[in-house]
Nucleic acid binder design. Structure first.
Length: 256
DNA sequence: ATGGTCGGCAACCGA
């Protein structure tokens, strides 16, 4: 079972990249964040032609999550609960033998902003969501844009970036509280020493070439799923004719 | 060097 995650920053603009990647890699499940499209305009047909079911919640301009899968799911739902008025950041898809939760964690803007507190609160709600909705033995795969680089190896300059948004002690504490529910960072399990950056700020000139990256996109799994992971990698090789930020897929393979 | 880049969408916002 091949599971992948991709921050699209506008799925319609990225369709040529995504469709080619699906053809090349044939993931069973792809989690997409920042689709930036209303549901009425989501490219269902293009994914269907490629052999994928689509499940999505989006809005104009901002946010939006989608999960596409070659295998038929049992059910799909969005948000922390059915009454949640923000459904564009969390998708839960149940398959026969495992569950996938795809999140687009709030970015947080800067540590002194209200949005940063919203991010911390959101992570706290996510912890409760996992704690109450799942037991430790459930095979659960949590994938998406976490907007947090967990450890020094996950950022290009841990000293300079200490305390920055996406690499801040309060974010680390919130993420650790979720990890302690029983999650394993599947990429880090298989690649203990490779930075594995997934994001390069495109406001910084030549950030990719200069290796000024962050690992903020992740695939985590509970023990029963993580013990069945066989490999994980980050596909961030830009084709020469593309912008570097176009093409960063986080991938994990499981015997599930 | 006090700027630089995206997508969405129609003036800027968020990343």
């Amino acid at each position: 079972m091949k599971i992948a995650s991709f921050n699209a920053n506008g799925i319609r603009a990225r369709m040529p990249v995504v469709l080619r990647w699906l053809e090349e890699q044939v993931p069973d499940v792809l989690c997409i964040q920042e689709t930036k499209v209303q549901d009425s305009q989501f490219p269902v047909n293009a994914f269907e032609d490629a052999g994928y079911h689509s499940f999505f919640r989006g809005q104009k301009s901002y946010n939006g999550v989608a999960v596409i899968s070659r295998i038929p799911p049992v059910s799909a739902c969005f948000g922390f609960n059915p009454d949640d008025d923000e459904q564009v950041r969390l998708a839960r898809i149940d398959f026969d033998r495992f569950t996938v939760v795809n999140t687009y964690v709030p970015q947080g803007q800067s540590p002194d902003s209200e949005k940063f507190q919203y991010k911390l609160d959101w992570l706290s709600r996510l912890r409760s969501y996992f704690e109450t909705g799942f037991s430790a033995s459930d095979p659960l795969i949590w994938a998406g844009d976490f907007n947090i680089a967990p450890h020094p190896i996950d950022v290009y300059d841990p000293q300079a970036l200490a305390g920055s948004v996406c690499y801040h002690p309060l974010e680390h504490r919130a993420l650790d509280a979720i990890r302690r529910l029983g999650f394993t960072d599947v990429y880090r399990k298989h690649k203990p020493d490779d930075p594995g950056f997934s994001f390069w700020d495109y406001r910084i000139p030549n950030a990719l070439k200069r290796k000024l990256g962050w690992r903020i996109d992740h695939i985590w799994a509970t023990a029963s799923a993580a013990e069945k992971s066989r490999s994980a990698w980050i596909d961030a090789e830009p084709r020469t004719w593309e912008k570097p930020s176009d093409h960063t897929f986080i991938v994990a393979v499981f015997d599930l």
